[in-house]
């Protein structure tokens, strides 16, 4: 009680301490603002420059040739055609890459979780980390030699998705391992104490419990590879028409952006294609954020 009255006096230098506190808050706020401004500016620019091109034909027609674009430009019209060949190509290769990478990635992730301290698992984990750092163009080169040169004998969607699949692998492996690690040991023990064989605990308890985490990892891996351009140049090459044959050259949205960039008549299409790609990646990120939030 006595100390309460004694403390009533203002401590020395309180004003300057409060000032420092306020200054710090302002600085933190400014830096946070600097962090969000690029993404806001990017989206703003893409919308302003790209919205004109986004109409029905953008999704239903293949890319125009230079001549069509030049005519349209000189008449001050919107460039005809769309990027259907890119959209279908991207979807085809993403699905194919996922089919290759998801099962393998999940299994390796489970293996690492199961044998977290074993020597072999440590080696696998380190190599996974290295794989994550391999430049994507190098993976494209490898896919070129593995698939283009020896399997499909020519540029192909299969080669492109092989490169993309290898890029997805480390992301899925690590997110699987991390997700399973987050599940409390007692859940596993509860299953053991009921006399449940281990593989059933894994399949029926651990994987359902971590399902949202696994799904998030997969979605983020897809959003990581969907905009990859470099490895596709060496593997899928690109095509003028819509292609569903995995052994044939195939276009993709990022490949089309690169082609549009190299053609002065098609500059407008760069922006709309980028807007579409960006929107898709944002959507995937938002979905995974939502899943994570629901889990917590």
């Amino acid at each position: 009680m006595i100390s309460l009255t004694a403390n009533n006096k203002e401590p020395k230098g309180l004003d300057s301490r409060l000032f420092k506190d306020r200054l710090f808050k302002v600085v933190v706020f400014i830096f946070a603002f600097i962090t969000i401004s690029p993404i806001v500016l990017i989206i703003y620019k893409l919308i302003i420059k790209g919205y004109k091109q986004i109409n029905l034909s953008f999704f239903t027609e293949t890319a125009p040739d230079t001549y069509e674009a030049m005519i349209a430009l000189s008449n001050n019209e919107v460039i005809p055609g769309g990027i259907l060949n890119g959209i279908t190509g991207t979807l085809l290769m993403v699905v194919l890459a996922s089919v290759m990478a998801i099962p393998i990635g999940l299994l390796i992730g489970i293996f690492l979780y199961e044998n977290s301290t074993k020597r072999y698992a440590n080696i696998v984990r380190d190599i996974t980390d290295i794989l994550q750092g391999v430049p994507s163009i190098v993976l494209g080169l490898i896919a070129y030699f593995w698939v283009v040169k020896s399997i499909t004998n020519g540029f192909s969607a299969l080669a492109g998705s092989t490169a993309l699949g290898i890029m997805m692998l480390p992301l899925i492996i690590r997110s699987t391992e991390e997700t399973l690690k987050m599940i409390p040991e007692t859940i596993k023990e509860a299953g053991m104490a009921l006399g449940v064989p281990y593989h059933k605990i894994l399949l029926r308890v651990l994987i359902p419990t971590g399902f949202s985490g696994l799904l998030t990892g997969i979605l983020l891996a897809i959003s990581r590879i969907i905009g990859e351009t470099a490895p596709l140049m060496l593997t899928a090459l690109g095509s003028m028409g819509v292609n569903y044959n995995i052994e044939k050259p195939t276009s993709a949205v990022p490949l089309l952006i690169w082609e549009f960039y190299n053609d002065p008549n098609m500059v407008d299409l760069i922006w709309s294609s980028s807007l579409l790609l960006m929107g898709f990646v944002l959507l995937l990120n938002l979905i995974s954020k939502h899943i994570m939030a629901k889990r917590a």
């Binding site: 007692t186 859940i187 509860a190 299953g191 009921l194 449940v196 605990i201 359902p208 419990t209």
Partner: peptide, 24 residues
């Protein structure tokens, strides 16, 4: 166990019957 550890993805019903269900 020390901390309550019902299976988080299962209903109350399924938790009780879990020993049978998981063992097939």
């Amino acid at each position: 166990f020390q901390h309550p550890n019902p299976f988080p993805t299962m209903s109350i019903y399924d938790n009780v019957i879990a020993g049978y269900k998981l063992n097939g």
